[in-house]
């Protein structure tokens, strides 16, 4: 793989690359334990992550960047799909109107996040949540981090 500088397998690189771009994130996370080259590429190579996302959004009819949000302020408390700012406008909602009850979503969330959060925005599959601080959340990797606050 061009960016890793190491051979991933004794197989043609074009094919390995094409295959890795098509695999779901769950498989890629598991295969990060194949060896160090795979681990570096799959979990910390930014250009691979970017091209995987690009491939997924261009080719996957399910649109991986789509987010399922369960909102209190949405009529009948129906879960709703949000993909962009346009979607918010379409539902006649401002960002701050959206109260997310993560415990009610089908997404896997870290336990400490199972409370109400505001959605600040989302980009490239990462959702930025707010509750007394900012929490970028990657549902595909099931990872959430707290950003340092001004006081820190």
């Amino acid at each position: 793989m061009g960016n890793s500088g190491e051979l991933l397998a004794p197989w043609p690189e074009d094919i390995i690359r094409e295959i890795l771009h098509r695999l779901p994130v769950k498989s890629l996370v598991r295969f990060s334990s194949i060896n160090n080259s795979w681990r570096k590429l799959l979990l910390s190579n930014q250009s691979f992550v970017y091209s995987h996302l690009k491939h997924a959004t261009n080719n996957n009819v399910n649109r991986l960047t789509c987010v399922l949000i369960y909102s209190d302020c949405y009529p009948d408390n129906l879960p709703t799909f949000l993909q962009s700012e346009d979607d918010l406008a379409h539902h006649n909602l401002g960002r701050r109107d959206i109260l997310v009850k993560l415990k009610n979503t089908a997404l896997h969330t870290p336990l400490h996040l199972r409370q109400d959060f505001l959605v600040v925005g989302c980009c490239n599959g990462i959702i930025c949540l707010y509750r007394k601080g900012l929490f970028p959340w990657n549902p595909a990797l099931r990872e959430c981090r707290a950003l340092p606050t001004w006081a820190d």
Binding site: L8, A9, P10, W11, F31, I34, N35, W38
Partner: peptide
Amino acid sequence: VEWVRKTFRIESD
């Protein structure tokens, strides 16, 4: 992981 290593002939380090 073992299946992929075997199929693609990759050694674990």
